[in-house]
Amino acid sequence: MTSIASESRTAPAPKYHYDSGRRWQTFLLEFAKYAILIPLTISFAFPLYWMISSALKVDSQVFTVPPILLPYPIHPENFIEGWQVLPFTRYAVNSVVFYTVPAVVFTVLSSTVVAYGFSRLRWPGRDTMFWLVVMTMMLPWAVTMVPLFITFKWLGWLDTYRPLVVPALFSHPYIVFLLRQFFMTLPEELSDAARIDGATEFGILFRIILPLTKPALAVVALFRFLWAWNDYLGPLIYLRDQNRYPLALGIEQLSNRANDIGNFSNGLPYLMAVSTLVALPIIVTFFFAQRTFIEGISVTGLKG
């Protein structure tokens, strides 16, 4: 869509040297900017702050007016106790082993090969077909939801992760789009030299192109991880057996307990603690890979 936003490319400060009226106006504008930006940022941060701070409370600190902004004493044991209310370790294993990891590996491998075919090879009809790929990016997933469920039921795949990860073997249009953009930036001479040396196209892809596109692979792997980790509707449709639940469905189970206030103490702090633990890998990854995230959405408009 647009070129990559880099941290370093901050806009230079406007250097206007005008009369004092102008300067007064500039000062007012600067003031207004932060007067909007700071409260806005606080409101954006508040829900997640509230999640983490409530995770450290006990019931008597939750049900107060006014609400307690800085809990004291804090109760970090909620993270362990909340995690043990339901088999969250199993849910985490399910999320990682059966869903996230295969989804990422399958999608990245298949999309790499497909993106190579749409960028580094020249063949008649290529661009027409790529236009179809772009069209499928806009296809509402709601349309295919029911028939795919019927098909997967017929295959006997209900209550397994297969409906969620097998389609990943067939590439993902957003990720193909993004990888294609990256592949096209590499000079054609790289491939030509290898072709003269008798390399096959697969060889060129895996030995020459991929080592040069590691950052792009990181971007797409990151986003695929995010989609699988955050997915709620997919598991909700396909998984019935609670032993197979991923974390997203586990949290929902816990919320049914937590809202049974009176019969279950510290339910809300536990719910907030587990929600924090599930959101944490995403937030931590963001801090370590902020540039990767920002580049990914800036290039294709990938959504979280």
């Binding site: 829900p47 997640l48 409530s54 963001f286």
Partner: peptide, 19 residues
């Protein structure tokens, strides 16, 4: 700070907003 809410699991943010 403004971007993070869009990548947090929707289930987790739904729980906080409900609260």
């Amino acid at each position: 700070v403004i971007y993070i809410p869009s990548i947090v699991p929707a289930v987790a943010s739904a729980m906080v907003w409900q609260f």
